[in-house]
Amino acid sequence: MENNFPRTGVFICDCGLNIAGTVDTAAVTEYAQSLPGVVCVVHNKYTCADPGQNEIRKAIGEHKLERVVVASCTPRMHELTFRACVAQAGLNPYLMEMANLREHCSWVHAGDPAGATQKAKDLVRSAVARAHELQPQIEPEVDVTQAALVIGGGIAGIQAALDIADGGMQVYLVEKEPSIGGLMAQLDKTYPTMDCSI
């Protein structure tokens, strides 16, 4: 039965009990199978761990996946991880989409497993729908200027500037007062060594 939807794989993560403790991930897995374009659904204990990532790469090859949806934690944590993962399997990284079943669902609805499971299904459904509309993108590459700027010349700024400069890069150390040194320059002796601070 051919349709016009891109071939989509959905990877549902338990995150140990972090997600599975509240959300019925087996039910979400079953639900995902019914979604348009979805040709494979994999249910994992930890999708971000190596075995979980291997499954994604394997499935991309086996099922000729054109889109990948990872239903796990917040994309603010692992979007780059999973983009890199699908890229290794030859899929454009912008064809990966995430559904946040942990921070935005299991963790905040611990007292309402049924509601959380329903919401998790919605989040997966929405991620799959968005995934179908995604387009491959080429990330522009830029040269990196070989210099760094450090704002604040206390002990932290000084130490950072020295480390970077010792590594061979140019550093600008910007201090608003007329001398660097910061708070520590005003201390007599410092714990735990009880020696002079400057």
């Binding site: 704002i151 010349g153 000084i158 500037a161 020295l162 140019q170 550093v171 150390l173 201090e175 400057i198």
Partner: peptide, 19 residues
């Protein structure tokens, strides 16, 4: 502190602020 002041690859800009 001295080391930072002397380092050939560190330009120390005091009395300075990023604007």
């Amino acid at each position: 502190m001295m080391d930072a002041g002397r380092h050939p690859r560190i330009k120390v800009l005091v009395s300075s602020e990023v604007i």
